[in-house]
Design a protein around this nucleic acid. Sequence first.
RNA 1: GCCCUCAUCGUCUAGCGGCUAGGACGGGGCCCUCUCAAGGCCCAAACAGGAGUUCGAUUCUCCUUGAGGGCACCA
Length: 458
Amino acid sequence: MGWFLLVPRPNHKQQSTPLSMSQVRVRFAPSPTGFFHIGSARTALFNWLYARHTGGVFILRVEDTDQARNSEEFLSLIYNSLRWLGLDWDEGPEAGGEFGPYRQSERAPVYAQFLERLKASGRTYEKDGALLFRISGEPQVIEDAIRGRVERTEEKDFVIVRSDGKPVFHFVNVVDDISMRVTHVIRGEDHLSNTSKHTELFKALGEPIPVYAHIPLILKQNGPGKMSKRDQGALVEEYQKRGFLPEALVNFLCLLGWSPKDDREKLPLAEIVRLFDLPGVNQSNARFDEKKLAHMNMVYLHEMVPERCFVLARDFLFARNFFPEGAPDEAYLREVIALCQPKVRAIEDLPGFIGYFFSDDFAIDPKAKEKVFAKGDPKGRLGELLTSIPTADFSSDAALEVLVQGLAAQHGAGTGDYIHPARLAVSGSGVGPSFYGLLRVLGRDRVAARIGRFLATA
RNA sequence: GCCCUCAUCGUCUAGCGGCUAGGACGGGGCCCUCUCAAGGCCCAAACAGGAGUUCGAUUCUCCUUGAGGGCACCA
């Protein structure tokens, strides 16, 4: 890892005119042939981070030349996911820019023009109706900003235009990077072996070679191989639908192949932007760990301001049709969410956690009931509590706590002797949010009715 | 098969010649106590193997092994 101390840092300035290359220009170039997945998201993220770190330009380029497999749905999914993650692009579709168009399907004239240049160099020839590129056969050396010197010799000529007239990936990719003035190519390591094809093309066209930075791949969490869009937990859209917090997913993704080099893990994006650099990126592949993502998501959830949590939770609950009988009172919902925010690990846990706040028709958990009735006199305690409810102060948790402590002292019992049976009576569950908050939010009427019903039926 | 890349706890990582090899997730235990999927504390857990270089290697070099990727008229 010490090579970058010896070799001057990325040397694009030596390779081109300082004026045109004075600003970093990176691109993320997805092809809309399937769902947007975690690996692509991280590649986009690292490009975005580098652009923001250097004050450069982040370009979105759509590689939609595979017409048989492309779809506009997949494309808008990419846009949506990038926006959800906060990865805004400076140039590209829906953003404009002076080096467009940014969809390859609209760039045929550019490819024709560069093809003429390549033909003029005498390095192309036709075979079976396709156009081939004649390689130099010379070793291709790149100074990868992450891996250091990598050398590889391309061994055979390759097709650059199919017999149907469509140019292939290697050619259009290089042409676009040239014409969009891309200075740094940050992409997955799966492209490392392709790079020799690309440098051959850059040289044949007499163009400067960009700085390459091949980032490690994300491996699927179970089983062999890299993560693909078919793997469990691979789709960005899925996390969005499940109510994950985008800042948590971004933070987690940053830590797959990069670290701040100290023991911090949760850090603000602005801090990551400040610290991020290519030599700090790891060289080894990382295995995706959904448990750690879930933990990161929980940490962000618990630290989030309640109002934002409310908005996210409300939208999520409505999206899941959690209120089939219509919207609940907003102030009440806000209180429920605020009460439960510290107790759930994720927004998606909410539906299973808050049902009894919105319906009196909840089941009594038999296990919890067994535990409550195992000792003491739960019904007697509930009776005492019920008697005190009409005159109780439900305006604050503290007031309710005082009430229960008073009952306990008066009857020579512990607060738990009231709390556990009462929690069961009002929620049907042995677990839940802070007890006094639970009573306060449910309110006097519900609490009294539910305890009364419990005493009558349990 | 050929080529390229990588290699520290189960997982994500810190470490850039001398450390009791640190942190986090997950796992186990204890505490708190109004429950808990929350919080606090503690424990187990790693330098793949072999040769070198060096006074000294997790750290540098080579080999082996393992892992990943690439070798399309897919991108």
